[in-house]
Design a protein around this nucleic acid. Structure first.
Length: 418
RNA sequence: GUGGGUGUAGCUCAGCCCGGUUAGAGCAUCAGGUUGUGGCCCUGGGGGUCGCGGGUUCAAAUCCCGUCACCCACCCCA
């Protein structure tokens, strides 16, 4: 085959497109209940924006971005995530001036040049929310509950919510120092990768799946023990609100996020139905990002969710509703004149809002009925020589097999009533 | 970037170890059984560079080397 979809990209075929639409519709419906407003931003931005927001030392920026030069030799990058663009737009359009609290959501494809595997593509779709303008732990709780709620609305089973707080710029350094020292002192007990992580992004050692490292980390200093009074209180409130709403979660002091902009509350929702890439939703606070990108000091929180992963779980747990796109009428013409009459009727019926189609392949009546059956047509209008002569078509009900003759002029009327 | 697995018909796969008649099955598709009537059934047909390139051999889907793609995992993350 000469041309194929590129590695890590996928075609969405007609059989799956309705499922995709189902997902989007349902999510939109819920987001509307929560009073979130949609925002759409370009798929590419200045490279610098992502470097600034995601962090120069992260893997995303280091080796996963699709970066290219445009004709003017500017460095552009296909967005690897959604938050940076939205914060950029928030600042650029002074959205914070119009109202002090902005609740946004987005859908869109993201691009990361990683090795594909189950639940991970190079071009993938995310939806996400961002709430910009409030430091109130109540907002954290609302955002987390929203994430839980959306998954619940799809009937997903086997989900777990993990929660942590990674502190702020005041309390993180103390933990970082203590943690680095802890690891350095017993560096030989950690795997190769973790020894590298210590230099790059020490907290990610918490993510290591290596048994040795997990064991070695047993008594490691946890960020939760280092939170300053404000952060501690904030986190306490978040948990209280979640408890109030009956949201179950697992307190996970090892949960650290991979993007630099996160502060305080972080959370993930994982599905046990997925493989290694099991995070359905990941998010947290990013109180410093708006000012980091040149806006006024504005606190914010949000999450991003992988739609392909949601799709996988829905498929596995058979949670897609099976609604067929049935045809109201299928027209079966048996000759040249019949075809042109059929085309006219088709137009009239469609104008009245009926879903219909006609056989374009000049097939036998038998084949045409077969086709109508495949299309799950409710009725078939047969137009042959006899019908043409009489000025009446034969209308067959595909379920009852009843047939009646009906004048072409009255057809549209009759079908609308039925 | 690293490791393992898999590439044969539109789809799911058998055949490969132990090279050898026209490369198979089920599903799908088309036609006929019903000269104008679907779903079930029966009969028949079409459809394959056996991922690609090279090598070994009288002979390669089958053995060897290379290469590409996909999948899973590491890594990373949604």
């Amino acid at each position: 085959m000469k041309y194929t979809a590129l590695q890590g990209t996928k075609d969405l075929l007609p059989e799956d497109a309705p499922k995709w639409r189902y997902i989007e519709d349902k999510i939109r419906e819920i987001l509307s209940l929560y009073n979130y407003k949609e925002i759409r931003t370009p798929v590419f931005e200045q490279t610098e924006l992502f470097k600034r927001s995601i962090g120069d030392d992260t893997d995303i920026v280091q080796k996963e971005m699709y970066t290219f030069q445009d004709q003017g030799k500017r460095s552009l990058t296909l967005r690897p995530e959604g938050t940076a663009s939205i914060v950029r737009a928030f600042i650029e359009h002074n959205l914070g001036e119009k109202s002090p609290l902005v609740k946004l959501f987005y859908f869109g494809q993201m691009f990361r040049q990683e090795r594909p595997q189950k639940g991970r593509l190079r071009e993938f779709n995310q939806y996400g929310v961002e709430v910009i303008g409030s430091l109130d732990p109540l907002v954290d709780a609302e955002v987390i509950e929203l994430g839980v709620r959306i998954n619940k609305a799809f009937g997903l089973e086997g989900l777990k919510l993990y929660l942590n707080s990674i502190g702020c710029k005041d309390c993180r350094p103390a933990h970082r120092d203590a943690f680095n020292k802890f690891v350095k002192d017993k560096i030989e007990k950690f795997c190769q990768d973790c020894q590298l992580r210590l230099l790059r992004n020490p907290l990610r050692i918490f993510d290591c799946k290596n048994e040795k490292c997990i064991e070695a980390l047993k008594d490691a200093p946890m960020i939760l023990d280092f939170l300053d009074a404000k952060c501690k209180n904030h986190f306490k409130k978040v948990r209280e609100y979640l408890d109030q709403m009956g949201i179950e979660y697992i307190l996970d002091g090892r949960l650290v996020r991979g993007l630099d902009y996160y502060t305080r509350t972080t959370f993930e929702i994982k599905s046990e139905a997925l493989g290694a890439q099991d995070t359905l939703i990941g998010g947290g606070r990013y109180d410093l990002l708006v000012s980091e990108l040149g806006g006024k000091d504005t606190p914010a929180i949000g999450f991003a969710a992988g739609i392909e992963r949601l799709f996988l779980v829905l498929e596995m747990q058979k949670k897609f509703p099976l609604e067929d796109e049935r045809l109201d009428v299928f027209i079966a013409p048996l000759g040249e004149k019949e075809k042109s009459l059929g085309l006219k009727l088709l137009k009239d019926l469609r104008e009245k809002g009926l879903r219909c189609d006609l056989d374009f392949l000049e097939r036998s009546l038998k084949s045409q009925l077969k086709e109508a059956d495949r299309q799950k047509a409710k009725k078939v209008l047969i137009i042959g020589e006899d019908e043409l002569k009489k000025g009446k078509g034969t209308l067959r009900d595909m379920e009852t097999k009843e047939q009646k003759e009906i004048e072409f002029e009255k057809l549209v009327q009759e079908l609308i009533r039925a």
